[in-house]
């Protein structure tokens, strides 16, 4: 019988192996390229098509690939577990990728350990502002409060007598920046926004329930940030409540209610990074995407009937932030 137990265990491990194989999406193999651009790899916490944080960097890398600045893009997605991400980062560096990106502030300590072992590889991570004093590490961040402020202004214009609900993940990083900026923008336009952090980046159910609770308590506009918000967007869609997105364009999830999305255009950062690497500088810099450098872009849903007054208020706020005449308070 012991033999059968071993067989059973082998079957289990075979099943696990089949299901949990390298989540590299194969882009590396698919992207033959012209052989002249750099080879880039990225490790992301959630799915590469999450319509949020992870998708923003993957889309940007593919944009640079299309421009010929990168010859190959490899992606390992869904690495919520930091130790798994560390293995992938080290493997990419071992395989000789020119640029290895750790797309998540939780990966910082891993990168700090790995980067010194590969002095000829350029590493980048974000959202963060610390390069650990290492010459081959760059950091990047997003001034997400800026787009948050703009959408807060518009949300106040749409809310009428109702309140505005904000579904946040954990009170850190660009999520906190977005939420704070959104509340400041809504407040500046006479709106009342309340934020609830659900203390999770992945609990879709709780995000949905929080949105449901907001609607039940009189919210007439909703927003949220991070990958778990798809649940909240579903609630907004079902209740017919306008939704403001961030990180990626979320119109596809709920075309009837998504008003606009703040979209991260990491291409702005990546172009500088690639240029620096080609020039022989592997790191040491910190980058930020903003409305002014067009790393942050407000993309409107053309199918949503947004009043001209509200859109104008949003555009004015965006222009004022870009030229420095308005501060988000961050």
């Amino acid at each position: 019988m012991k033999r059968f137990r071993w067989l059973a265990l082998l079957l289990v491990f075979a099943l696990v192996g089949a299901a949990c194989g390298d989540s590299d999406d194969g882009d590396g193999a698919d992207s033959s390229g012209d052989g002249e651009g750099l080879r880039a790899a990225v490790v992301t916490p959630s799915a590469e098509n999450d319509l949020a944080f992870s998708q923003s960097i993957v889309d940007a890398l593919h944009a640079l690939e299309s421009e010929g600045l990168l010859s190959e893009v490899a992606v390992t997605e869904g690495t919520f577990i930091v130790e798994d991400a560390a293995v992938a980062l080290r493997a990419y560096a071992d395989e000789g990728y020119d640029l290895v990106i750790a797309h998540g502030s939780q990966y910082g300590s891993s990168l700090q350990e790995i980067a010194p072992d590969f002095p000829d590889t350029a590493f980048a991570w974000g959202t963060a502002a610390d390069t650990f004093g290492l010459s081959n590490v760059s950091a990047y961040t997003a001034a997400s409060d800026q787009g948050g402020y703009v959408m807060g202004v518009m949300a106040a214009g749409l809310a009428g007598d109702g309140s505005i609900g904000v579904v946040g993940p954990i009170e850190v990083g660009d999520a906190k920046l977005f939420v704070d900026g959104f509340i400041a923008g809504a407040s500046s336009a006479g709106g009342s926004a309340t934020a609830v952090y659900i203390d999770s980046f992945s609990d879709t159910t709780l995000a949905a329930e929080t949105a449901t609770s907001f609607v039940a308590n009189g919210a007439t506009v909703l927003t949220g940030t991070a990958q778990m918000t798809v649940g909240a967007i579903g609630v907004a869609d079902g209740a017919g409540v306008p939704w403001f997105g961030t990180q990626s364009n979320q119109t596809k999830v709920a075309p009837d209610v998504v008003v606009a999305s703040q979209v991260y255009k990491w291409e702005v950062v990546l172009r500088d990074l690639v240029s620096s690497i080609n020039g022989g500088t592997l790191g040491g810099s910190t980058y930020e995407i903003t409305l002014a450098n067009e790393g942050l872009v407000i993309e409107y849903n053309d199918a949503y009937d947004l009043s001209a007054d509200v859109k104008s208020a949003g555009d004015d706020a965006a222009n004022s932030i870009a030229d420095g005449s308005v501060s988000t308070g961050q």
Binding site: L7, A19, G21
Partner: peptide, 21 residues
Amino acid sequence: FHAEQGISGIGLYLFGLGMSE
């Protein structure tokens, strides 16, 4: 196969997690 249930269950969990993704 009389496999140990704890280990097999974790295997089943990982299979479902990975396969659904």
